[in-house]
Amino acid sequence: MAASLPSYSFDFTWVPAALPIFARALSLTVQILLWSAVLSVLIGLLTGQMLMSKRIWLRAPARIYVDFFRLTPILFQIVAIFFLVPLVFGLSIPAFTSGVIALSLNYGAFFSEIFRAGVQSIDKGQWEAAESMGIPHLRTLRRIIYPQALKRMLPPIGSMLISLTKDTSLVSVIGVAELFNTAQTVGASTFRQIEVLLLVSLVYLVINLPLAVGAEHLNRRLNRA
Protein backbone atom coordinates (compact mmCIF):
# COMPACT_ATOMS: atom_id res chain seq x y z
CA MET A 1 0.00 0.00 0.00
CA ALA A 2 2.68 2.45 -0.97
CA ALA A 3 2.46 4.64 -4.06
CA SER A 4 5.39 6.90 -4.74
CA LEU A 5 6.26 10.23 -6.26
CA PRO A 6 9.88 10.91 -7.28
CA SER A 7 10.58 12.54 -3.95
CA TYR A 8 7.89 11.13 -1.65
CA SER A 9 6.42 7.72 -1.01
CA PHE A 10 2.89 7.58 0.36
CA ASP A 11 2.21 5.34 3.31
CA PHE A 12 -1.28 4.54 4.55
CA THR A 13 -0.38 1.61 6.74
CA TRP A 14 -1.22 3.65 9.90
CA VAL A 15 -4.89 4.00 8.85
CA PRO A 16 -6.46 0.89 10.47
CA ALA A 17 -4.96 1.66 13.86
CA ALA A 18 -6.13 5.30 13.71
CA LEU A 19 -9.70 4.54 12.65
CA PRO A 20 -11.30 4.49 16.14
CA ILE A 21 -9.80 7.84 17.07
CA PHE A 22 -10.95 9.35 13.77
CA ALA A 23 -14.43 7.95 14.30
CA ARG A 24 -14.61 9.84 17.61
CA ALA A 25 -13.29 12.97 15.92
CA LEU A 26 -15.84 12.70 13.14
CA SER A 27 -18.59 12.34 15.70
CA LEU A 28 -17.40 15.53 17.41
CA THR A 29 -17.24 17.42 14.12
CA VAL A 30 -20.77 16.37 13.26
CA GLN A 31 -22.02 17.40 16.70
CA ILE A 32 -20.35 20.81 16.39
CA LEU A 33 -21.85 21.19 12.94
CA LEU A 34 -25.40 20.27 13.97
CA TRP A 35 -25.44 22.38 17.14
CA SER A 36 -23.97 25.41 15.38
CA ALA A 37 -26.28 25.06 12.40
CA VAL A 38 -29.42 24.96 14.55
CA LEU A 39 -28.29 27.69 16.95
CA SER A 40 -27.03 30.03 14.24
CA VAL A 41 -30.27 29.73 12.27
CA LEU A 42 -32.27 30.51 15.41
CA ILE A 43 -30.00 33.46 16.25
CA GLY A 44 -30.27 34.64 12.66
CA LEU A 45 -34.07 34.46 12.66
CA LEU A 46 -34.27 36.46 15.87
CA THR A 47 -31.65 39.10 15.10
CA GLY A 48 -32.73 39.34 11.45
CA GLN A 49 -36.19 40.25 12.71
CA MET A 50 -34.66 42.74 15.12
CA LEU A 51 -32.74 44.36 12.25
CA MET A 52 -36.07 45.09 10.56
CA SER A 53 -37.75 46.43 13.67
CA LYS A 54 -39.03 49.98 13.75
CA ARG A 55 -37.89 50.18 17.37
CA ILE A 56 -34.37 51.51 17.67
CA TRP A 57 -33.71 49.67 20.96
CA LEU A 58 -34.22 46.38 19.12
CA ARG A 59 -32.54 47.40 15.88
CA ALA A 60 -29.38 49.03 17.23
CA PRO A 61 -28.11 46.11 19.36
CA ALA A 62 -28.81 43.70 16.50
CA ARG A 63 -26.91 45.93 14.08
CA ILE A 64 -23.90 46.14 16.40
CA TYR A 65 -23.89 42.39 16.97
CA VAL A 66 -24.20 41.56 13.29
CA ASP A 67 -21.53 43.97 12.15
CA PHE A 68 -19.09 42.94 14.88
CA PHE A 69 -19.35 39.25 14.10
CA ARG A 70 -19.43 39.66 10.32
CA LEU A 71 -16.51 42.03 10.13
CA THR A 72 -13.98 40.48 12.53
CA PRO A 73 -12.08 37.21 11.93
CA ILE A 74 -13.90 34.09 13.04
CA LEU A 75 -10.67 32.62 14.35
CA PHE A 76 -10.30 35.61 16.65
CA GLN A 77 -13.88 35.15 17.87
CA ILE A 78 -13.34 31.49 18.66
CA VAL A 79 -10.23 32.21 20.70
CA ALA A 80 -11.66 35.35 22.32
CA ILE A 81 -14.84 33.65 23.49
CA PHE A 82 -12.84 30.71 24.83
CA PHE A 83 -10.82 33.04 27.04
CA LEU A 84 -13.48 35.68 27.72
CA VAL A 85 -16.42 33.55 28.87
CA PRO A 86 -14.67 32.23 32.01
CA LEU A 87 -13.46 35.75 32.82
CA VAL A 88 -16.81 37.46 32.36
CA PHE A 89 -19.12 34.79 33.76
CA GLY A 90 -16.70 33.29 36.25
CA LEU A 91 -17.35 29.75 35.11
CA SER A 92 -15.25 27.57 32.88
CA ILE A 93 -17.07 25.91 30.05
CA PRO A 94 -15.84 23.04 27.91
CA ALA A 95 -13.93 23.99 24.78
CA PHE A 96 -16.58 22.19 22.76
CA THR A 97 -19.36 24.43 24.10
CA SER A 98 -17.26 27.53 23.69
CA GLY A 99 -16.51 26.61 20.08
CA VAL A 100 -20.17 25.98 19.32
CA ILE A 101 -21.10 29.36 20.83
CA ALA A 102 -18.49 31.17 18.74
CA LEU A 103 -19.49 29.45 15.49
CA SER A 104 -23.18 30.04 16.23
CA LEU A 105 -22.68 33.72 16.93
CA ASN A 106 -20.56 34.20 13.83
CA TYR A 107 -22.87 32.31 11.47
CA GLY A 108 -25.92 33.77 13.21
CA ALA A 109 -24.71 37.20 12.10
CA PHE A 110 -24.54 36.08 8.48
CA PHE A 111 -27.89 34.28 8.64
CA SER A 112 -29.33 37.44 10.13
CA GLU A 113 -28.47 39.39 6.98
CA ILE A 114 -29.65 36.57 4.72
CA PHE A 115 -33.03 36.41 6.47
CA ARG A 116 -33.38 40.19 6.52
CA ALA A 117 -32.63 40.44 2.81
CA GLY A 118 -34.98 37.54 2.04
CA VAL A 119 -37.90 38.99 3.99
CA GLN A 120 -37.35 42.47 2.59
CA SER A 121 -37.28 41.12 -0.96
CA ILE A 122 -40.94 40.12 -0.66
CA ASP A 123 -43.34 42.61 -2.23
CA LYS A 124 -44.93 44.86 0.39
CA GLY A 125 -48.30 44.14 -1.18
CA GLN A 126 -48.09 40.72 0.50
CA TRP A 127 -47.86 42.43 3.89
CA GLU A 128 -50.68 44.78 3.02
CA ALA A 129 -52.97 41.96 1.93
CA ALA A 130 -52.32 40.14 5.22
CA GLU A 131 -52.62 43.29 7.32
CA SER A 132 -55.83 44.32 5.62
CA MET A 133 -57.40 41.05 6.78
CA GLY A 134 -56.11 41.49 10.32
CA ILE A 135 -53.64 38.60 10.24
CA PRO A 136 -51.19 39.01 13.14
CA HIS A 137 -47.60 39.99 12.39
CA LEU A 138 -45.82 36.79 13.40
CA ARG A 139 -48.39 34.66 11.65
CA THR A 140 -47.94 36.72 8.48
CA LEU A 141 -44.19 36.09 8.69
CA ARG A 142 -44.65 32.38 9.23
CA ARG A 143 -47.41 31.60 6.75
CA ILE A 144 -47.00 34.22 4.03
CA ILE A 145 -43.59 35.90 4.04
CA TYR A 146 -41.11 33.16 5.01
CA PRO A 147 -42.51 30.44 2.70
CA GLN A 148 -41.92 32.79 -0.22
CA ALA A 149 -38.64 34.19 1.06
CA LEU A 150 -37.25 30.69 1.69
CA LYS A 151 -37.11 29.99 -2.02
CA ARG A 152 -34.86 32.98 -2.53
CA MET A 153 -32.80 32.36 0.59
CA LEU A 154 -32.06 28.71 -0.09
CA PRO A 155 -28.90 29.15 -2.20
CA PRO A 156 -27.17 31.44 0.34
CA ILE A 157 -28.34 29.26 3.26
CA GLY A 158 -26.94 26.20 1.50
CA SER A 159 -23.55 27.78 0.93
CA MET A 160 -23.43 29.01 4.52
CA LEU A 161 -24.01 25.47 5.82
CA ILE A 162 -21.31 24.12 3.53
CA SER A 163 -18.98 26.81 4.74
CA LEU A 164 -19.92 26.04 8.36
CA THR A 165 -18.92 22.40 7.90
CA LYS A 166 -15.47 23.53 6.86
CA ASP A 167 -15.21 26.16 9.59
CA THR A 168 -15.84 23.60 12.34
CA SER A 169 -12.16 22.79 11.79
CA LEU A 170 -11.27 26.18 13.28
CA VAL A 171 -12.29 25.14 16.79
CA SER A 172 -9.25 22.86 16.71
CA VAL A 173 -7.28 25.89 17.93
CA ILE A 174 -8.94 25.77 21.34
CA GLY A 175 -8.19 22.08 21.69
CA VAL A 176 -11.43 20.40 20.68
CA ALA A 177 -10.44 16.97 19.37
CA GLU A 178 -12.50 17.20 16.23
CA LEU A 179 -11.30 16.04 12.82
CA PHE A 180 -8.68 18.65 12.07
CA ASN A 181 -7.27 18.70 15.58
CA THR A 182 -7.06 14.91 15.53
CA ALA A 183 -5.45 15.00 12.11
CA GLN A 184 -2.66 17.13 13.53
CA THR A 185 -2.21 14.84 16.50
CA VAL A 186 -2.11 11.70 14.38
CA GLY A 187 0.05 13.40 11.80
CA ALA A 188 2.57 14.35 14.43
CA SER A 189 2.73 10.89 15.93
CA THR A 190 2.92 8.96 12.63
CA PHE A 191 4.96 11.54 10.71
CA ARG A 192 2.45 11.09 7.89
CA GLN A 193 0.91 14.61 7.85
CA ILE A 194 0.25 14.66 4.11
CA GLU A 195 -1.61 11.35 4.10
CA VAL A 196 -3.57 12.29 7.21
CA LEU A 197 -4.66 15.63 5.76
CA LEU A 198 -5.62 14.00 2.48
CA LEU A 199 -7.80 11.53 4.32
CA VAL A 200 -9.42 14.19 6.52
CA SER A 201 -10.15 16.48 3.59
CA LEU A 202 -11.95 13.55 1.99
CA VAL A 203 -14.13 13.27 5.10
CA TYR A 204 -15.17 16.96 4.84
CA LEU A 205 -15.95 16.33 1.20
CA VAL A 206 -18.12 13.35 2.12
CA ILE A 207 -20.09 15.48 4.62
CA ASN A 208 -20.51 18.42 2.27
CA LEU A 209 -21.26 16.65 -0.99
CA PRO A 210 -24.74 15.45 0.05
CA LEU A 211 -25.36 18.90 1.57
CA ALA A 212 -24.52 20.61 -1.72
CA VAL A 213 -26.48 18.14 -3.83
CA GLY A 214 -29.43 18.29 -1.43
CA ALA A 215 -29.51 22.09 -1.41
CA GLU A 216 -29.39 22.21 -5.18
CA HIS A 217 -32.13 19.60 -5.48
CA LEU A 218 -34.38 21.42 -3.01
CA ASN A 219 -33.64 24.71 -4.71
CA ARG A 220 -34.72 23.34 -8.08
CA ARG A 221 -37.82 21.74 -6.63
CA LEU A 222 -38.96 24.91 -4.81
CA ASN A 223 -38.29 27.18 -7.75
CA ARG A 224 -39.95 25.01 -10.34
CA ALA A 225 -42.82 26.95 -11.87
Partner: peptide, 24 residues
Protein backbone atom coordinates in the same frame (compact mmCIF):
# COMPACT_ATOMS: atom_id res chain seq x y z
CA UNK B 1 -59.59 45.27 0.78
CA UNK B 2 -59.03 44.54 -2.89
CA UNK B 3 -55.81 45.86 -4.40
CA UNK B 4 -54.82 47.10 -7.82
CA UNK B 5 -52.07 44.47 -8.00
CA UNK B 6 -54.30 41.70 -6.50
CA UNK B 7 -51.62 40.80 -3.91
CA UNK B 8 -52.61 37.14 -3.94
CA UNK B 9 -50.33 34.78 -2.03
CA UNK B 10 -48.41 33.12 -4.88
CA UNK B 11 -47.35 30.06 -2.89
CA UNK B 12 -50.96 29.04 -2.35
CA UNK B 13 -53.77 27.77 -4.55
CA UNK B 14 -56.88 29.86 -5.13
CA UNK B 15 -58.83 28.17 -2.37
CA UNK B 16 -55.90 28.36 0.06
CA UNK B 17 -55.74 32.10 -0.62
CA UNK B 18 -59.40 32.42 0.27
CA UNK B 19 -58.96 30.30 3.40
CA UNK B 20 -55.88 32.05 4.79
CA UNK B 21 -57.54 35.12 6.30
CA UNK B 22 -60.38 33.06 7.71
CA UNK B 23 -57.89 30.72 9.38
CA UNK B 24 -55.24 33.22 10.48
Amino acid sequence: MVFQQFNLFPHMTAVQNVMEGQRS
